[in-house]
């Protein structure tokens, strides 16, 4: 009898946590809609940070711990700070926000929904999906990803460092004030 109740408790927990995926998915969609519909660009950046946080929770649910940490540090930490910094540097707010006319807005929303319907329609033609099963739960851990990264993907890893260096040089060169022409 205790075993049975334990089992029931376990499955109940699974259902409860399965709902966690849908809750987090709903939150991501809700905040990403707020990103594109809020008038003030600073609010857009803040909502985008919350969206990325919910995506980090998705990565944790998939047991991709390395990606969760990288998403947390790189996206929420570095990229969003960069966005916020540029927004505040340019002193943008609601008054200076250019808005499209309503007709173009409605056309854009309709076009986006058409894309969504097309995508969903094409995905429905696929076979019935299996539930996501963690076949090897350890593949997302830092240890295993590091081994893969430094064995099979060593060359792309090094090339990406050159890419980051060139991007840094390009950003400095672009943002520098042009010297006065003689």
């Amino acid at each position: 009898m205790p075993i049975f109740s334990l089992k029931e408790n376990w499955s109940g927990k699974i259902i409860q946590l399965m709902n966690l995926f849908y809750l987090i998915a709903f939150l991501s969609i809700f905040f990403s809609l707020l990103v594109i519909f809020s008038k003030n660009p600073v609010y857009s950046v803040l909502y985008l940070i919350i969206t990325f946080f919910t995506l980090t929770i998705h990565y944790i649910l998939l047991n991709a711990q390395f990606l969760a940490i990288v998403n947390f540090i790189v996206y929420m930490g570095a990229i969003m700070v960069l966005f916020l910094f540029v927004l505040m540097l340019l002193n943008l707010n609601e008054d200076s926000e250019p808005m499209k006319s309503n007709l173009i807005k409605i056309a854009g929303v309709v076009a986006g929904l058409c894309l969504l319907v097309t995508l969903i329609g094409s995905f429905r033609a696929l076979a019935d999906s299996d539930p996501v099963i963690l076949k090897k739960p350890e593949i997302g851990l830092v240890k295993n990803l590091g081994k893969v990264l430094f064995n099979e993907f060593l060359l792309p890893f090094e090339v990406s460092s050159v890419l980051l260096l060139s991007a840094m040089v390009g950003a400095v060169l672009l943002a520098k004030k042009e010297p006065k022409k003689i």
């Binding site: 927990k13 849908y22 998915a25 969609i29 594109i36 986006g112 539930p131 996501v132 099963i133 963690l134």
Partner: peptide, 24 residues
């Protein structure tokens, strides 16, 4: 354990929705 019951199609659907919001 929590994602064991979520079908892969729901992940595809969710990503499609997020992508469409980005396009919008």
């Amino acid at each position: 354990n929590s994602i064991q019951g979520v079908p892969l199609n729901h992940y595809i659907l969710f990503s499609a929705i997020l992508f469409s919001i980005g396009v919008m």
